[in-house]
Amino acid sequence: MKSLLKKELSFYLNNPLGYIVIILFAVFANFMFVKDIFVVGSASMRPFFDILPWLLMIFIPALTMRMISEEKRTNTMEVLLSLPVSETQIVVSKFIAVWILTLIGFVLTLGLPISMYVLTGQVGGRIYLPEVFVGYLGELLLAASFIAISLFYSSLTKNQILAFLASVITIFFLIIFSTDFVAGVLPPVLQSVLNYLSPIVQLSNFVKGVIDIRSIFYFLSFTALFLFLTVVDLERRN
């Protein structure tokens, strides 16, 4: 699996596409937070963690859309499947590769909490760093579930754009499940179910600095489900 992971990562790291997507993500993430930092008037990373899912909604499908669809279109998937490597290894290596790229994107935003820590220290009210770490942990779990969704769509079609759009639309609906807009439109029973299914609701505890085991379970099972469905799609031998 190491060789598969190396292949996936080297594609992005030897290609402008990987750098463009990661740097654009970092620029947008930093800018979206910094532009409002003085308006908010409080030293907290929460607004940043609230913005991130919307950015991940675009950037993760952009990184993931080609991963399986392109292999199917160019028929290199047939080459891979004719080698002694399991479908699970193929899917997991692709998943880890995008997750590592997302991690690199997150590392490029670390300047925000660090500068905030230094600045707030000067006025005697330092931000609480463990809360920031837990926030990042939540975002990484959220990113994992978005990657799994995008990989699944990438496996369903040979068209990258279609995979991108389907992923963005699915993630968009998952995000808005938790909004007041949906709450006002749907019956309360359905609303509570969708609220539970929304990754944003599960993320909210992490944003507050609370590690919630139920939310970790939610993200891990969500990710595992979509990775499993992707493996099942590759295992089809029709």
Binding site: T74, V79, P84
Partner: peptide, 20 residues
Amino acid sequence: RMETLQHIGYLPENNPLYGE
């Protein structure tokens, strides 16, 4: 799958390769 593919070398039609 894994056991059998260990013993097979395959050259597919049109020979798809990783161009990059």
